[in-house]
């Protein structure tokens, strides 16, 4: 199969060793799959943000919130949805298809926490769930906080007084 799909006039014989074949397949694969991955990430990630915008619009119109105030409850609703989908095992299927499209939105943050919590449940509530929930998300929280601290320091040094 692979030999035929290689196309062109040059036919290689089927006597390729598995190693040769892997190397050969690798030269064919990446460029196409990166583009495809990006398209899928774009569509799924965009769709999640679209859903977020719809929820935000509901908060603005039904609860009469200001757009700035509505983004926090929107994020919370998306996180609840993500936790439910993760619990049902659906989010991981979406993630396999979408790659970064489902990992980059805040739903992916919740997914990483929820799946870590579920996975380590058998080790107990304290050591398993409590200890492992931030296994992936922890790096995001730590680096975000440290970066925010240094940005704050920079604002202090430049004397903006927090205006930005």
């Amino acid at each position: 199969m692979a030999v035929k799909s290689a196309g062109g006039g040059k036919y290689r014989k089927m006597s390729m060793s598995p190693k040769e074949y892997q190397a050969f397949a690798k030269t064919r694969e990446p460029s196409r799959s990166i583009f495809g991955n990006c398209i899928r990430a774009f569509i799924v990630g965009g769709a999640i943000c679209l859903l977020g915008q719809a929820i935000q619009q509901l908060f603005i119109h039904l609860a009469h919130m200001k757009p700035e105030d509505a983004s926090n409850p929107t994020v919370a609703v998306l996180i609840i949805l993500s936790v439910i989908l993760t619990s049902l095992g659906v989010y991981d299927k979406i993630a396999q298809f979408a790659g970064a499209g489902s990992a980059v939105p805040v739903t992916g943050f919740a997914n990483s926490m929820c799946s870590a919590a579920l996975e380590h449940r058998s080790e107990g509530l304290v050591l398993g769930v409590g200890g492992n929930m931030f296994k992936l998300a922890g790096s995001v929280v730590v680096f975000g906080t440290v970066a925010a601290f240094f940005v704050g320091i920079a604002h202090l040094i430049f004397g903006t007084g927090g205006a930005h």
Binding site: C38, V44, G45, G46, C49, G101
Partner: peptide
């Protein structure tokens, strides 16, 4: 929202 959100996800995918 769709375009910008999607673009940030593509940035992640490229990483």
């Amino acid at each position: 929202a769709f375009l910008v959100g999607g673009a940030i996800c593509v940035l992640g995918q490229i990483c």
